[in-house]
Nucleic acid binder design. Sequence first.
DNA 1: GTAGCCTTGAGT
DNA 2: ACTCAAGGCTAC
Length: 213
Amino acid sequence: MENHSMLLSLNMSPFNANSGDSLAGTQASSPMPPQYGSPPISHYNSCQQSLAMQHHQQTTMMMNQNMNDLDTSHTFSSGANSISVVDMSASYQISGPATSLTTGDLPDTKDGIEEVCPVCGDKVSGYHYGLLTCESCKGFFKRTVQNKKVYTCVADRGCHIDKTQRKRCAFCRFQKCLEVGMKLEGKFSLIQIRVAHVRLHPRHTTHLRNCAD
DNA sequence: GTAGCCTTGAGT
DNA sequence: ACTCAAGGCTAC
């Protein structure tokens, strides 16, 4: 950690959710684009996919502004709803699809045959912290955030995370949790994300209105 | 510390 | 009343 640190705030409640947005949704409007893991296709209509991608791009822009330096540890602020991550590595590419878990690695989910955790590939147990994950990654993310865990990677922060190796490197596992989009507010974030598009991209309001119809 | 199960509370 | 997700509990 010789490099100077830049705090990257992942504020869990960055947007005003009191805009009365009629699009305030439930799990049927996951913010994650389909290339992350394997959200059920039925959960995305074209408008929702568009929204998801917009959020993805927006997040990318926000994250890129803050990730310029290298570090190997995550730290947490004492705020109830905020996590400060001491800048993640340059190879930490929020802007890209979820690391090594490509869609080609995933089983077909067209008929709801099986859905896998985008973090470790285990069977999902439901929506947790914003997206479909397994029970263990849900618990891992919960423990990490609630206990303000600080992990380090003994390797080069590129550890492969799967069902059998997910215990080996907590740093890389948590990093992957963040990469795939896990966040504290869960279903409530979906409202905030949509509100964010309206606030930050007024020209999309027409599109949102069309989606709502 | 991990992960599965259970309880609780909010939303519909 | 039902569903779902967050958090608690606990065996390992």
